[in-house]
Design a protein around this nucleic acid. Structure first.
Lengths: 405, 405
DNA sequence: ACCAGTTAATTCGGCGTCCAAACAAAGAGT
DNA sequence: ACTCTTTGTTTGGACGCCGAATTAACTGGT
């Protein structure tokens, strides 16, 4: 009835903290929330009541009684809001719609000419049909994952792979479609997904490494995605391995990417005669699957190279886990041995046991889901991301309020 | 009069934010504080008034008038509180007392037997004379920098170099001396110093690399020191460089430390005949100073090795600056060329220009000052470090309140 | 010298949030 | 049936923050 959400400023820290805790740590009781956040029980009651009235969370179950009144377990209501996420790649867009709890609602895909006079036109045309509310649940915003550097302050995109320089993607689309738009590096979006809904849920400190056409990484530390001082954190493909190594398209020599990306693997396999002159990544995989020793050696060496790099990063950053993802994991059975051996061998012995390795089977929609997660996690984060308040306001506008619980 | 500081909970977010801004960004006007933090002017007036009454900040100057009422520039009052900082090393303790604004008050040093039955006894005996208040200003706490891993949650210390395993240094000393005690890795304490008072002041994202007996690093990202998932972040000496390299005392092969620490440099110089069989780091430096080509080549190679590693870290973490410190910087004139060349060569071209490199001349007391900074910055940080509230309470107890301003 | 314009800082009233204390609910153990 | 334990709620009071209006202090133009 009365807009309980309308403080003079939407910076209600505790409200966001409670929602974040419920969102991230699954069904949880009010008493638990109070203890974990150091809040008083009355405060938690008040906050959760208003969140329930807003339709954002609800009681899902009774907790097991432990000698007292049984607790009520609260969880977020998935259909209270949804978001569109898009992975932008050279030549193709992959998009999804997802619920507040990460449930995949819808997927779509289309060719994309990133070199068009105005590539944003095509993007907005593709997105337009997906902007409507679903069952009265509002669209919270659009998330975009782009292969390049994104300055989260200005929203400008630098994407050499797409030929984009200083592109104001965020603000342009946001104004055109009148919807909050968040843009980030594509590997960062994947990490956002893993953190909120995927393999990274249990961790506050983890690395995501992606393998495919290129090599990428994202760093989640202290529970937050680290973007670095210029929005370029996570670059892994151009990590210097050997100053005297093969030339890289970036102008340097011996970048990691010249050793372990798809193209480099195929090239190496060609040199040892494991595949023919016109072979692609799939052919190399097939050769290794069929037991070709040369093909397997290529994978083992690449896995070891990557494992050593991962060990170095893990040594410095001390993550709880390393997640490996991307198209390249299709060949994980062949990469695993080299990677894991090198990782263990390269880490300081007492710390090696503290790092778990998970492989997320490749799925193109996951990247897009990650872009959506960028939006979906905005209501749960304290830090003032550009459109966070606008997204929160949209979530609060969910008319599912006042329905008899 | 009325204890303005005594909210029901000391979690007064804005109060801490204002104090942090004034502490970190020097003399600053109220209007500036309001703009930067997004607070209303009345709020800033109220908060600063209570901080002034508490004696923690004061007006230091008038700002330059820009066509209106001149602003009053506020800054922290150094003598409002002080802290003791100690660098713990094998065989020797180095300690300092420092004001709230980082002014060095006092230094002391003593031999230390880390292998004694109870090494903490000696530590507490050394500290006891320094626990008294100075001019009524309270001792806020003691900071300790230890060469090893520190779990900031449990306070347990793992320090192979000292032979310490699972040592409850923090809680033991805190209880014994009845003073808040904070313990962290020694390189982390240095980074805390740099961030608060040193070369890192302008940055929120930077790396600190230390060079000396060993090689270390600390990561400041998003304005906070990153400790990793197990309190071991920053380990750099055991970064794997070459799986087939020389054996390291940690049991692995080809760790960075086997190439660029003091001992390794001297060893390499011996092999090329640049120094005699019993030479030490100082002798190697002297040889290089005198123009010995072999000695200079050793430094150049080591600098390049370190520069390549720094380039790799900077590529992934995207810092605004890299600070180099530690005893090894005594030979920086010889290391610089190799380091800077490799750093530039190893970074992704568009990003290389965004990283500045600063060398902090080596000074043993800086490490200890860093340990003190661990305590001194506690009142300025939001995150709930173990003793942060206790430290804030002590600062608030400063009787310098009520003095006529 | 005076007034207009501008920026800084303060006072005041009101609203919203949080907490402590007391209370109600609901089950376990004896 | 009783007590103990744990969860969740209600109530009253204290505190913090904001918007609006006010005071303060300086620059620049005439």
């Amino acid at each position: 009835m009365t807009a309980a959400t309308s403080g003079p400023r939407l910076r209600d820290v505790n409200r966001v903290a409670v929602l974040a805790l419920i969102g991230r740590h699954g069904p949880i009781s009010r008493a638990d929330v109070a203890r974990r956040l150091g809040l008083s029980p009355p405060t938690v009651t008040a906050v959760t009541r208003s969140l329930i009235e807003a339709g954002v969370i609800r009681k899902v179950d009774d907790g097991v009684p432990r000698g007292g009144r049984p607790s009520e377990l609260l969880a977020v209501v998935g259909p209270a809001g949804h978001a569109v996420g898009v992975k932008v790649a050279a030549g193709r867009l992959t998009g999804v719609r997802a619920d507040l709890d990460g449930t995949l609602l819808d997927t779509f895909s289309a060719p994309f000419d990133e070199a068009a006079v105005n590539p944003f036109e095509a993007l907005s045309a593709l997105l337009a049909p997906h902007l409507a509310a679903v069952d009265d649940a509002p669209l919270l915003g659009i998330g975009l994952g782009v292969p390049g550097f994104v300055d989260s302050r200005t929203g400008l995109v630098e994407a050499p792979l797409l030929g984009w320089r200083h592109m104001p993607l965020r603000d342009y689309l946001s104004q055109l479609l009148d919807v909050p738009v968040l843009v980030d590096n594509d590997v960062n979006t994947l990490a956002a997904y893993e953190h909120l809904y995927g393999l990274g849920r249990p961790y506050d400190d983890f690395l995501t490494i992606t393998l495919g056409q290129g090599v990428g990484a994202a760093v989640v530390s202290g529970g937050d995605l680290r973007r670095g001082g210029h929005g370029a954190a996570g670059e892994l493909g151009h990590l210097p391995i050997d100053p005297a190594g093969p030339p890289c398209h970036c102008g340097k020599r011996g970048c990691l990417e010249t050793y372990v990306c798809d193209g480099a693997l195929v090239e190496q396999a060609r040199e040892v005669g494991a595949v023919g002159p016109d072979a692609g990544p799939a052919d190399l995989r097939a050769a290794a699957d069929n037991g070709h020793a040369g093909a397997r050696a290529v994978y083992r060496a690449a896995g070891a190279r990557l494992g050593t790099v991962a060990a170095g990063l893990a040594t410095v950053l001390d993550p709880q886990a390393v997640l490996v993802s991307g198209e390249g994991t299709l060949a994980w059975t062949h990469l695993a041995e080299g990677f894991l051996t090198a990782l263990r061998a390269g880490m300081f012995p007492p710390l090696a046991d503290g790092v778990s390795v998970h492989v997320d089977p490749w799925d193109d929609t996951k990247w897009a889901l990650g872009a959506a997660a960028l939006v979906l996690r905005a209501p749960f984060t304290m830090n003032a991301e550009p459109h966070a308040d606008a997204i929160r306001a949209r979530l609060a506008a969910f008319p599912g309020a006042e329905v008899a619980q």
